[in-house]
Every structure is written in C-alpha cells, then in structure tokens.
Simulated assay, not measured.
Amino acid sequence: MREFLRQYGAQIARLTFEHVWLTASAMLFAAAIGLPLGILLTRKQGLARPVLAVANVLQTIPSLALFGLLLPVPFLGDRAARLAIVALTGYALLPILRNTYTGIRGVDPVLVDVSNALGMSNLQRLLKVELPLAASVILAGLRTATVTCVGVATIAAAVGAGGLGELIFRGVASVDNGLVLAGAIPAALLALCADGVLGLVEKRLAVRR
C-alpha cells in the first residue's frame, strides 16, 4: 500500500483536484441557470412543462453518449475540459431546476396572500418569504446535483478532460484493479463528503423552517 501511494500519490492528488474543479465549475453554471429559471417557471406556469421536459431528456441521455454528441460542437470539441463542464452542467440542471420550482410552488398560499396584503413587492415576497421557506427543498436539489456531478465526472476522462476517471479507464485498459480502485475510492469519498456536508446544511435549514 505504501509503495502504491508513493508511486501514485501525487497523481491521485492532481486528478482529485481536477475532479473537484470540473464538478465545482459545472455546479456553479448549473446553479446560475437552474435557480433563476426555476423561479421564472413559478411565475410563468405555461413554460414549466416544456422546460422541465427538456431537462428530463438531458438527464436520460447516457453520459458517454452525451460527451460524444458534444464533440463536434464548435467551441466545445477542441477543449475537453470545456466540453466536460457543459455536459456535467446539463446533468446537474434537472435536480436544481425541479427542486427550485417545486419548493417555491410548495409555499403555503396563505403566507403568499399575507405577504401581498402587507404590500410586499414580488421581489420582497420572493426574498423574504418564498426562498427562505423553500431553501431546504432547493438545497436538496443542489445536493442531488452535486453527487450526480461527482459520479458522472469520472466519464470525463474518456474525452481527455482529466479527473479521477483517468485512473479508472487506465486500470480497466490494463486490467489493474489497483488503478481502478485508486480512481473509484477517492471519487466515492468525494461524493460522500459532498452529500454529508450538504445534508447537514439541509437539516439545519429544515429545522429553522
């Protein structure tokens, strides 16, 4: 074990950093798109079904196939990391979008009526009533999206984007279970850590609610 860590330790650390960077970048873009769009759908009910349907379709495309479909796209295919981040953003979008929409729609209508009676503007109602009450549901979507991203990011190595999947693919190609585990175990630990931290925050928000 010591010999293995001495040989591959630096490489595992570098690929773990790449994995975290890919996941964090994708989550940033997914949150920047999903949160405002989810809020917009609560105001434009007619758009909710088609937009959620498109997000559902993205979620059902096999990850390796999606990476392959994006390869010929201009501006993406020439940069593996860029392509991977776009694909991961697509996979992370549905949980964030759906939970934002569901959380805000699930706010008690009586509280919405009270806020309107108090003369709150739409923005004030959103910031002071709807988002605080929907925060735990929205965070649950972010939690699901993060774990999904960590898992799917291992496939990014197939297009040369790096990450822990690189060790997994090399291990499979050389029939080396040690290399496979060297990539799979840190990826699993990353997913568990992200899920645990966000789970604690979600519970705290649920208690405050």
Rank of each mutant, 00 (worst) to 15 (best):
Arg143Val: 03
Arg125Thr: 15
Thr144Phe: 02
Leu58Trp: 11
Arg105Gly: 07
Gln124Pro: 00
Gly199Ser: 09
Gly34Ile: 04
Ala24Trp: 07
Ala140Asp: 07
Leu123Trp: 14
Met27Phe: 06
Ala173Gly: 05
Leu71Tyr: 13
Phe29Gly: 12
Val152Trp: 00
Arg2Glu: 12
Ala26Tyr: 02
Leu70Trp: 08
Leu164Met: 01
Leu167Thr: 11
Val197Trp: 07
Ser115Gly: 15
Ser63Leu: 09
Asp78Pro: 02
Leu93Thr: 13
Val159Phe: 03
Ala87Asn: 10
Val137Lys: 09
Ala31Asn: 10
Arg82Tyr: 12
Thr42Lys: 10
Leu94Trp: 03
Arg98Leu: 14
Ile33Tyr: 02
Ala140Val: 12
Arg2Ala: 09
Ala188Gly: 15
Leu127Trp: 15
Gly77Ile: 05
Arg14Lys: 12
His19Arg: 05
Leu181Ala: 13
Ile138Arg: 01
Val51Trp: 10
Leu198Phe: 07
Ser174Leu: 14
Val114Ala: 11
Leu76Asp: 01
Val180Lys: 10
Leu181Arg: 03
Ser25Ile: 12
Leu123Thr: 14
Val159Gln: 03
Lys128Asn: 12
Gly77Arg: 05
Ile39Gly: 01
Asn116Trp: 01
Arg98Gly: 06
Ala92Lys: 08
Pro62Phe: 09
Ala117Val: 06
Leu66Gly: 09
Asp78Arg: 13
Pro95Asn: 11
Phe4Gln: 05
Leu52Ala: 00
Phe169Arg: 09
Arg79Cys: 07
Val207Arg: 15
Val147Tyr: 02
Cys149Ser: 15
Ala92Arg: 06
Leu5Gly: 04
Glu18Met: 08
Ala184Val: 11
Val129Ile: 14
